[in-house]
């Protein structure tokens, strides 16, 4: 943790009618880093993402992005600050082509009254073409996003998140529904993002997590259980008992 904290969760609690999905969680994400969040089902991984991007409002605590409190901002304003999230089930825009999906994501000027003009489209298109190569969908450029395979949709959505050029990318189960080959291709794509972006990945699959080579955070019952390298986590007996042991 040599670099300055870009995102900080400070004692965040999310209470769903008495059920604490997130319980007094504090976490720091430095810029340009790779963080992998693991934990059993119901550990609060997705809720943590929801809290960061403003889909869920914390009951207590603060979410700080470059020192600014963002936990009360509207979702699209949080994206404007530089945080973008990929959802667990791919949410690509099925009625548009792959390149249009990326171009919409890459538009810097997102004010609605500018959408009648062509201002900024060239820049967005150039960015979209670059990301298209990066996520390996060049040969599907003009296909309708709704006609992509499940794996391709996942890559497209990763591409859309990348195209926004957000500083922090949250990738919620980017390999859901993928085979081993597709998973390692996804890991390769994600590794190229680190540095320019800070990446936070949620996943269950330990093989995939090991390919990411990131800082690992273990959540359990909404709270931070351990953090460290994957090897440290693997050797931890408590983690093994609640999570890895069960997974094996």
């Amino acid at each position: 943790m040599s670099e300055a904290a870009m995102l900080r969760l400070e004692q965040v609690t999310v209470d769903f009618d008495g059920f604490k999905a997130i319980n007094d969680l504090s976490l720091t994400i430095p810029s340009g880093s790779m963080t992998v969040v693991i934990g059993p089902n119901g550990a609060g991984k997705s809720t943590m993402c929801d809290t960061i991007i403003g889909r869920v409002r914390p009951t207590a605590g603060r979410v700080l992005f470059h020192g600014e409190e963002i936990q009360r901002l509207a979702e699209h304003r949080i994206v404007g600050r530089g945080i973008c999230r990929k959802f667990q089930t791919p949410g690509v825009l099925i009625g548009l082509s792959v390149i249009d999906n990326l171009a919409i994501a890459a538009m810097r000027d997102r004010r609605w009254w500018r959408s009648f003009t062509r201002a900024g489209e060239e820049e967005a298109r150039a960015k979209a073409e670059a990301v298209l190569e990066q996520v390996g969908l060049a040969d599907r450029r003009d296909a309708l996003a709704g006609n992509l395979s499940h794996g391709e949709k996942q890559w497209l959505e990763i591409g859309m998140v990348v195209a926004t050029d957000a500083e922090l990318l949250l990738l919620d189960e980017p390999t859901a529904g993928m085979g081993a080959a597709e998973s390692s291709q996804t890991a390769q794509i994600i590794r190229t993002l680190v540095g320019r972006h800070a990446v936070l990945v949620i996943d269950h699959d330990i093989d995939f997590v090991s390919q990411l080579e990131g800082h690992v955070v273990v959540l359990h019952q909404g709270a931070l259980l351990r953090e460290g390298t994957l090897d440290e986590i693997r050797r931890d007996e408590e983690v093994a008992a609640i999570y890895l042991g069960r997974a094996k």
Binding site: R55, H76, V79, I94, T164
Partner: peptide, 11 residues
């Protein structure tokens, strides 16, 4: 097709 996706792209 995806009000939410659009919202979380910053629109």
């Amino acid at each position: 097709d995806g009000s939410n996706r659009l919202r979380f792209l910053g629109y």
